[in-house]
Amino acid sequence: MRKLILGRVLSSFFSLAALVVMVFFLSRLTGDPAALFLPREATQEMLDNFRRLHGLNDPLIVQFGRYVWDLLHLDFGQSLRQARPAIDVVFEGFAWTFQLAAITIALVSIAAIVIGSLAAFRPGGIFDRFASVVSLIGASAPDFWVAIVAIVVFAVNFAWLPTSGTGTVWHWILPVAVLFIRPFGLILQIVRGSMIQSFGSLYVKTARAKGVGNTSIIFVHTLRNAMLPVITVIGDQAAAMLNGAVIIETIFGFPGVGKLMIDSILQRDFNVVLAAIMVTALAIFVMNLLIDIAYAILDPRVRT
């Protein structure tokens, strides 16, 4: 088990390192940073000054060394627009996104697993029909449209909920609800399929022959086996959300990392963009590591 985790951490580390290299050189490919940062009417002197100040005249490899060194100190430089460390700006946004993702994924997982299991237990039954309708909606309704309709209906017409922003518990309801729909439909289908397969398995037959009751067969014998593919998809969806639910955050004026990235790109606040990429990448690597650990906990065959 320890060996497995160590191996995963090591391989994640290499991927992260590759990402650092890529981000550095790709960002240099977009053009001369001095020209990008300074206004178009800047004089040659201003450009030279800027280059000297930021060490842009040094060989690329020296610049890269400095960049990596700063990274190790979590120093991404200053945010140009907010005049404070870029990393602080990103952490602030990431905290919002993280909460949004965590709440949504937790709700999605619980709901999908329970309803999916019941749907699988009686294919064609009431839960199964509910599951297929919801999945269809989730898969076919574009989230920006759902978000806008939700705002029009619940915030504008009924005035039950705030339209956007943060502050109270009520502010969370619409973003979470809209974000919920698509992964819910997807995970529900995975749970259902995986559970149906697991119900048909031989060990379920053994459990029945032992006299084990239905509840125990669903939630003890079948579910744990059926969870393996489900966890992969949950992790995948969670990772996508951590990357910033750009559309939802923008529509609901939610100050998460996705919205931050869009704003920073538009405002050419590159330090913030780079910091945001690194932080979300790290979060996704941690997420994947958690999935691997969960896999190992659930399935003893992975451990040995």
């Binding site: 398995s201 031989l202 060990y203 037959k205 053994t206 459990a207 014998h221 744990r224 086996n225 659930l298 399935d299 003893p300 065959r301």
Partner: peptide
């Protein structure tokens, strides 16, 4: 096949 793989 008839023993549950994830329990001791």
């Amino acid at each position: 096949g008839h023993l549950n793989p994830v329990y001791t």
